[in-house]
Design a binder for these strands. Structure first.
Lengths: 359, 359
DNA sequence: CTGAAAGCGCTTACAG
DNA sequence: CTGAAAGCGCTTACAG
C-alpha cells in the first residue's frame, strides 16, 4: 500500500477524475443551476409543502444529477441540533449492548442519522454532569436509554431540561408511552415459573441481579407470581442477590446448594449467572438437569453453547433497539404525522435441556 | 415522571436558575468579556503559540468561569472536518466488536472526540460506496478499521482519496507503521502449537476461519510453524475450512472426528468454533481433554464458561482498540509533535483444562 | 409560492 | 502578537 500513496496525491491534482477530490456541490450550486434562491432549495431539502411541484421536481432532478446531499454539519449548526442519535448505557453485559446497537443501526440505516455510543458509569459521582455535557456538546438529536440508566429519573430530568428527545427501554413503564419500550420482564419470569411448576418443582430458587436494576425486582416478581398461580410460594431463603456476573452466579449457587434442603431448580436473573450455576453445580457434583434444573434469562449466545444447553427467557433485544430508535425518529415528526406505533415486546421461553422433573 | 414535566417547563422560564436553559456562552461572549477579538479566542482554543501569555491566561480563566466549550459543529463547519471518529467493521463476533469499541472509547474519553459506529457488509456490492458516503457526509476526523475491512485495499484507497486518516488493525502489517496496529496472530497460533507439541500431540487439526479473513491464513501459518519447530507436520487432511461460527465448528469437528485416524488435538480459528467442537465431541462420545485436546483463539468470555474451561490464545483486543484510536488522534498533531509510539501487541496463551496428553 | 438579509459559532487568509 | 473581513453550508424570521 505504501507505494501507492503518491498515486492518490496525483489523483487529487487531476480535476478530470470522476469526482475524486472535486468539491461536492453545495446549496448554492443547486440554487444557481435551478435559477432559484437557496431558500427554495432549503425548502425542498426540508420537504416544505410551499414549493410549486414543477420547481420541486426540477430541483430534485438537479440534486440527483450532482449527487447533492445537504451537509449535516451546516444544517445542524443552523438548526441548533445535530443528526446524531446517542445510545447511553451502563450495562455489564456486552452481548446486550451489541444487540441493542444493531437494532438502532437497523432503524437508522439510510435515515440520515448516525449512532454515537456513550457508555457511562452510574456510580461515578460525575455521571450526570458527564452525560449532560455529552448531550449538550453534540446537540444530540435524541438518545436511547437502556437499563439501568433508563431507570434514572435524574438523568431524564436533565434530558428534558436540555430539550433532548429520548426513548427509554425498561422492564416496566416509567414514562409516557411514546417515550417507552416496555419489555415486560415479569411475564418472561412467570413463564419460567410455569415451566418449572409443570415439571413438578416446588423448591425453586432465584438468583437476582443487583438491586440497582429494576429488572432484578421485576424478574423476581414474575417468578413469584408464576409460582403462586400453581400454589407454590417463592421462599425468602431461596432468594439470593447476585450481580449479573458469572462469578456472582457461582457464589450464589454455592450457597444454595450447600443448604440443608437445597432447591431443586434455580432461576437466574441472566444467562451469565446461570453459567455460574453450572460451574458451582459441577464442583458440587450436582448433575444438571437430573439433580438440578436451571433456567436463565436473555437467551444469549452462551445459552446454546453451555452443556446441557440452557433453557432461558428470551427477549427480542435487537428489536427493542430498533423500536426505540424508530420511536425517537418519530418524535421528530410534527405531532400530526407521527406513526405512533406501539410495537409489542413480549418475552418468550427458549426451552432446551437444562430442566427436568425434580431429582 | 409525567407529572414532573411541567416543573422543567417552569424551570426553563426561571432565568435565575443556574444555567438551566440559559444559552451557553459563545466565542463572541468570551471575546467581549476579555476585550479582545474573537480571532484571539480562536487562537487560544486551538493552542496557537501566537498569543501573549497573560492574554491567554486571562481568556482561559474567563472560559473556565463561564464553562465555555467551543461548539464542535461550528468548528467542524469551518474546519471542514468533524470531531467524530468512525469505527468501520464487518465482524461476525460481537464480543470482538464491543471490546474494540471499549478500547476506542477509553482513548476518546475527555479528548473532545466521539465514536460513531458503522457496521457494514463487505459482500454487499454497494459496500464501498456506502462507506464513502458515510465518511464523506460526516466528514469524519478519522476511522479505525478492524478485520476484515482493515484488509480491504480498495476501501483504504477511498479513505486516502477522501483525505480521511485511518488506522488499520490487522494480523500482519499492511501499511505504514503509523497506520497499523499489528496483532501478530501467527505468534499466538505458534504458541498453541508448542503447547500441544509439548503435551505430545502429533495429529493436530486446524479448523480455519473463512478465507476472506487474513487471520485465517495467519493462524494456520503460525500453527504450522510452531509444529514444525517440533518436527511435526500440519497435514492437509487435518485442515478444514470453517466460518468463525459455532455451527461451522460443529460441522468441521464432526468431519475430523469421523476420520479413520482422527486428530488427537484440534486448534480452532476462534472460540466460537471451539464451542462447536465441544458439542460435536460430546455427540460423538469423545471426552475432552482425555480423548481430544482443544485450543481456541480469542479468549472470549465463553472460553472460561465452557466445560472443561477452554485453553485459548488471548489477544488484548480492548488495548488494540485504544492503541488504534490513540494513533489516529496522534495523526492529527503536526508531524513534529507526534508521540509516534508503537505499542506492542502480542498474543498470549491462556491455558485452562481443555488440553491434555493424547489419549 | 418565493426571496433578500441576517445569523448559527466557529476558522481561514490577509494585513498590520 | 492581534484584528477586521469574509466564509464554511445551511436555516430562521420577515417580507412580499
Amino acid at each position: 500500500m505504501t507505494s501507492r500513496r503518491p498515486i492518490y496525491r496525483d489523483d487529487a491534482g487531476d480535476a478530470g477524475r470522476a469526482g475524486a477530490l472535486r468539491k461536492r456541490a453545495t446549496i448554492n450550486d443547486i440554487a444557481r443551476l435551478a435559477g432559484v434562491s437557496k431558500k427554495t432549495i432549503s425548502r425542498v431539502i426540508n420537504d416544505s409543502p410551499f414549493v410549486k411541484v414543477e420547481t420541486r421536481d426540477k430541483i430534485r432532478a438537479i440534486m440527483k444529477e450532482l449527487g447533492y446531499r445537504p451537509d449535516p454539519q451546516a444544517r445542524g449548526l443552523a438548526f441548533r441540533r445535530s443528526f446524531l442519535i446517542g445510545m447511553i448505557y451502563d450495562n455489564p453485559n456486552p452481548q446486550y449492548v451489541v444487540n441493542v446497537q444493531q437494532g438502532i443501526l437497523e432503524a437508522v440505516r439510510d435515515s440520515g442519522f448516525e449512532l454515537v455510543v456513550h457508555p457511562c458509569n452510574r456510580s461515578d459521582p460525575g455521571f450526570l454532569e458527564k452525560v449532560r455535557s455529552f448531550v449538550e456538546q453534540l446537540k444530540l438529536f435524541g438518545v436511547v436509554l437502556t437499563p439501568s440508566v433508563s431507570e434514572d429519573d435524574d438523568l431524564v430530568a436533565i434530558l428534558r431540561e436540555l430539550d433532548c428527545p429520548y426513548v427509554r427501554v425498561a422492564s416496566v413503564s416509567l414514562d409516557e408511552a411514546e417515550r417507552m419500550i416496555v419489555t415486560h420482564d415479569s411475564e418472561g419470569a412467570a413463564e419460567a415459573a410455569r415451566h418449572l411448576a409443570a415439571l413438578g418443582h416446588s423448591r425453586v430458587a432465584f438468583i437476582s441481579g443487583p438491586p440497582s436494576f429494576r429488572s432484578s425486582y421485576e424478574r423476581r416478581r414474575g417468578l413469584a407470581e408464576g409460582l403462586a398461580e400453581n400454589g407454590i410460594a417463592l421462599q425468602d431463603r431461596y432468594v439470593v442477590e447476585g450481580a449479573y456476573t458469572f462469578d456472582s452466579g457461582v457464589d450464589c449457587a454455592r450457597k444454595l446448594l450447600a443448604m440443608d434442603e437445597p432447591p431443586t431448580a434455580i432461576f437466574t436473573g441472566n444467562d451469565e449467572m446461570a453459567a455460574g450455576v453450572y460451574t458451582a453445580a459441577r464442583d458440587a457434583g450436582v448433575a444438571i438437569p437430573d439433580a438440578l434444573s436451571v433456567v436463565g434469562f436473555d437467551d444469549s449466545p452462551i445459552a446454546a453453547r453451555l452443556w446441557p444447553p440452557l433453557t432461558s427467557v428470551k427477549l427480542p433485544i435487537k428489536d427493542m433497539g430498533r423500536f426505540a430508535a424508530e420511536k425517537l425518529i418519530d418524535l421528530a415528526r410534527p405531532e400530526g404525522e407521527r406513526r405512533s406505533r406501539n410495537p409489542l415486546v413480549r418475552p418468550g421461553l427458549a426451552v432446551r435441556e437444562s430442566t427436568n422433573t425434580p431429582g
